[in-house]
Amino acid sequence: MGKKAVILVDMLNDFVTGALTCDRAKAIVPHLEKLVRAAREKGVYVIYANDAHIKGIDRELELWGDHAIIGTEGAEVIPELTPQEGDFVVPKRRYSGFFQTDLHLLLTELGVDTVVMTGLHAHMCVRHTTADAYYWGYRIIVPTDATDSFTKEDYEYGIQYLKDIYGAQLTTVDELIETL
């Protein structure tokens, strides 16, 4: 196995405490803090794939209303997970962190062959980012305690889909840290 990268999807103010608050998101923050800290200590890349919408333009806003608008506090990573020197931030305007972004190019240049998918939402943005990771040939690991969705049902559906359709290896943050 080659290099890994931890990808945090949409751990933004608007998804945790703002316009599209996901009350369940708060439960995964301590697990993400632990994972990101361990990844940095072990030299594993940390990459943020963040919604960064253009007000009045992006199609997602038609469905979900204004959220994560570029330049607003809502579009910033939550304070507990603030990117550090050496981390990477990839803005995205659609559900997938790969669509029309440089995420694949970045991962390729870093020599990454395995992505650890985390964040929000297992049935939407994490799912679509995972789909594209699969299409690009990355191995996929999903710590089930480091992702969630608006509802338990959406979360369970999303996680099962990632496993069944993309062959994601399901684990926990504690189990994963041992193998980083």
Rank of each mutant, 00 (worst) to 15 (best):
N13D: 12
M11K: 10
Y45D: 13
V77M: 07
G137Y: 08
L105E: 10
T130M: 10
I47K: 00
L180S: 07
A5Q: 05
V90N: 08
G86W: 08
D164M: 11
D174M: 09
V29C: 06
G43L: 05
V142H: 03
I69S: 01
G43A: 05
M124G: 13
L110G: 04
I78D: 03
A27N: 14
R93M: 11
A131S: 13
L105T: 14
W64G: 05
G43K: 11
Q100D: 14
D132F: 06
H67Y: 04
Q160D: 15
C22I: 15
Y157K: 14
T114D: 14
D66G: 04
T130G: 04
E80M: 03
L103I: 11
L8F: 11
K4G: 04
I177A: 11
E175C: 10
F99W: 15
A146N: 06
G111R: 13
V6M: 04
E178S: 10
D148S: 13
I70M: 14
T179Q: 13
L20K: 00
D58L: 03
A19S: 15
A49C: 07
A133V: 00
K34Y: 09
A68E: 11
D51T: 05
H121I: 15
V173T: 08
I54Q: 15
V90Y: 05
E85W: 08
T147Q: 03
Y134D: 06
L176I: 05
E76S: 12
L170S: 02
G119Q: 04
